[in-house]
Structure formats: C-alpha cells, structure tokens
Computed example of a mutant assay.
Amino acid sequence: MNLPELITKGGPAMWPLIFLSILALSTIIERIWFWTQTLLNEGKILTQILETASRNWEIAAKVARDYREHPIAKFLYAPLKLNNPEPEVFHFALESAADDALSAMRRGDKILEAVIALSPLLGLLGTVLGLIRSLANIQISDLGTSSTTGVTLGISESLISTATGLIVAIVSLAFYRLFQALWFNQVRIFRKAGGELEVIYRQKWMDLDDSRYALRSNRDPLEQREL
C-alpha cells in the first residue's frame, strides 16, 4: 500500500493528520538545528566570558557582545553592558535576561504540545467515521454471509487513521521530552553562570567601595586644613 492509497483508505481525518505531521516535522528539524548550534560552542563561550570578567570587566563586555547571537552570551551581555550598576540592579538585569533567553529556547513547544494532543483525537475520529460508514450498509440478514466481507475490510481500513495519529503523537512526544530535558539543563547552566558572574561583580563592587572610601579618607584632612 503506497502513500496515496493509505491516505484514501484512512478517510478524511488523514488530511489534518498529514498537516500536523508536516508541522511537527518542521518544528523538530528547526529545534534540532537550534540545540545543535547552542550546545556546540556554549562551554567555550561561557568559559571565555567568565575568565575575561575575572581579569578585566570592560573587555568581558566586548567578548559577550561579539557572541551575543548565542543565548548564553546574550544572557550575560545584558548586565555586562551596564555602567557600574548597583548590585541589586545587576541581579535584576541577570534575571530579566535569563527569562527572555529561556523563553526563546522554548519556541516550538506549543506546536508540539498541540500535535501531541490533537493527533490521537483526529485518528480516533477517523476511525469512528470509518466504522459508521462501514456499519451503515450492513443488515441483520447479511450476518454470516459473504456480504459482510466488505464491511470487515472497511473496519480494518478505518483503523489506519488511528494508527497514523498515534505514530505522529508518539514521535512528537519523544522529541518534545528531549527538548524539555535540554531546556532544563540550560536552566541549570544559566543559574550557575549568572551566579558566578554576580559573585565576580560583587567583588569588583566591593573593591570600588574600598577605593572610594580610601579616596575620601585621604581627601578629608586636606579639606579640613584648607578650612
């Protein structure tokens, strides 16, 4: 049985199932490409930004800006580009950037969720319609005769849509769970990277406070003598 025959025998529910399968397939391919590009250089970019931030804060902002097309670099660049913010402002910028980046990583999830929910229902609908069509022509007097052969064949063919819907839903669910696992791993990485960058900045902020205090302490006696 080739694809056109399968679609014809599966009934009218096969057409929306084909549409959902194409939609799910395109989403899966796009997400595989996204996660491959994201995970490929993430460790290298993250290490480079954090090591540079510990040595030279200004250069770290430039490094993050160069890689800002990558989610982790875009996340870290949001607070790095600020000009000596308060630690609370720095923390808020980290949280806001993390929310934006992680939300963007979940693009396509709603499509897969819809396909997972609708595909089995459409398959079941196709089966019910096929059973109605097959049983509508059977009569009590035909039971046990050769007249019921076509009805039996129609019932078996009506199950094609259910099998198709289940296949589409199972494949979509498998990739959906995979992408969810990758996303949860990114949440962990973002929290760890954000925490390390915030620690570096707070140390820098404390050094700046010590420098300002020392500068005021050295300047006050001079101002008093002038008075």
Results as ranks from 00 to 15, higher is better:
1 M>A: 14
2 N>A: 10
3 L>D: 00
4 P>T: 05
5 E>L: 15
5 E>F: 11
17 L>V: 07
17 L>D: 06
18 I>R: 02
21 S>P: 05
24 A>G: 09
42 E>S: 14
45 I>M: 07
46 L>E: 14
47 T>M: 03
53 A>I: 08
54 S>I: 03
55 R>V: 12
55 R>S: 14
56 N>A: 03
58 E>N: 15
59 I>H: 14
65 R>Y: 14
71 P>G: 03
72 I>L: 13
83 N>M: 06
87 P>T: 09
88 E>S: 13
89 V>C: 02
91 H>G: 03
94 L>C: 04
94 L>Y: 08
95 E>M: 11
100 D>I: 15
102 L>S: 05
103 S>D: 13
106 R>F: 00
107 R>T: 10
109 D>A: 12
112 L>F: 01
114 A>C: 09
115 V>A: 06
124 L>C: 05
128 V>S: 12
130 G>W: 09
131 L>R: 04
136 A>V: 00
137 N>P: 00
138 I>G: 03
144 G>E: 08
153 L>K: 11
158 S>K: 06
158 S>A: 15
162 T>H: 00
164 T>M: 04
169 A>D: 04
179 F>I: 02
181 A>C: 06
182 L>V: 07
183 W>D: 13
185 N>V: 01
185 N>R: 14
186 Q>R: 12
188 R>E: 10
189 I>S: 10
190 F>V: 13
192 K>A: 12
193 A>E: 05
193 A>L: 04
194 G>P: 05
194 G>T: 04
198 E>V: 01
198 E>S: 15
198 E>K: 07
202 R>C: 04
204 K>G: 07
207 D>K: 11
207 D>R: 10
212 R>H: 08
217 S>C: 05
218 N>A: 06
219 R>K: 11
219 R>Y: 06
223 E>K: 10
223 E>P: 05
224 Q>V: 15
225 R>V: 13
227 L>N: 07
227 L>W: 05
